[in-house]
Simulated assay, not measured.
Amino acid sequence: MSHGWKVTVIVVAVAAMVSTPLVWLMNGPDGGQFIGASVQAAVGIVALLWAILQHPQRQPQDRVSQTGVAHAEDGGTAHTGIKRPGGRGRGAATARRTGKATARGRHSSAGTGIDHG
């Protein structure tokens, strides 16, 4: 479960546990209202516990290390790390000891490490 959904479930659970049962119990409940308030509070507690005990989703991890040498010429591109065009991708990205990247010529590019371009 993502963090956003976890927070949402927790807020709704707390609201369910507090809102209606509190109103019913403050106005002198009859038997049906007391049972309804108890059931609603129990469902809120179960939802709260369920949300708290959920493990976070595993995010992918991009890793690169000890890459070789890359050369680009005449408009080419060389990259010895991780490419995430437009910043796309989730999770961690780690680049260690990447190789050398060189670019020669017009419109050529080279990079090492993590490229969000």
Results as ranks from 00 to 15, higher is better:
Lys83Met: 12
Arg96Ser: 12
Ala101Glu: 00
Gly111Met: 08
Lys83Arg: 15
Gly68Thr: 02
Thr94His: 12
Gly81Phe: 09
Lys83Cys: 09
Ala51Val: 09
His3Lys: 15
Ala95Gly: 03
His71Leu: 12
Gly117Ile: 04
Gly76Tyr: 13
Ala70Ser: 07
His107Leu: 07
Gln66Gly: 10
Ala13Lys: 02
Ala101Pro: 09
Ala101Asn: 06
Met17Gln: 10
Val39Ile: 15
Gln57Ser: 13
Asp30Tyr: 09
His3Ile: 11
Ala42Asn: 04
Ile82Asn: 06
Val23Arg: 11
Gln61Tyr: 01
Ala70Trp: 01
Ala101Val: 06
Met26Ile: 01
Lys100Ser: 09
Leu49Met: 11
Thr102Pro: 00
Gln66Tyr: 14
Ile82Met: 07
Met1Asp: 08
Thr77Gly: 03
Ile45Ala: 15
Ala101Cys: 07
Asp74Ile: 07
Gln61Arg: 10
Ala37Ser: 15
Ile35Lys: 03
Arg106His: 13
Arg104Ser: 11
Ala95Leu: 08
Ile35Asn: 01
Ser109Gly: 02
Ser65Ile: 05
Ala78Cys: 05
Ala16Val: 09
Gln33Val: 05
Val69Cys: 03
Gly113Ile: 07
Thr98Pro: 05
His107Glu: 06
Thr77Lys: 05
Ser38Gln: 02
Ser108Arg: 07
Val14Arg: 02
Asn27Val: 04
Val7Pro: 00
Ile114Ser: 04
Val11Thr: 04
His116Arg: 15
Ala92Ile: 08
Pro85Ala: 03
Gly36Glu: 01
Val7Gln: 09
Gln66Phe: 13
Val23Cys: 02
His71Trp: 10
Val12Ser: 06
Thr80Tyr: 04
Lys6Asp: 02
Gln54Tyr: 13
Pro60Asn: 10
Ala78Thr: 07
Thr112Gly: 11
Lys100Glu: 08
Ala37Ile: 02
Ile45Ser: 06
Arg97Leu: 11
Val14Gly: 12
Leu53Cys: 02
Thr94Ser: 11
Pro85Trp: 07
Val43His: 05
Ser109Leu: 05
Ser2Glu: 03
Ala51Leu: 05
Ala103Thr: 04
Val39Phe: 12
Arg97Met: 12
Ile35Val: 15
Val7Ala: 15
Gly105Ile: 09
Val64Gly: 03
Ser109Cys: 01
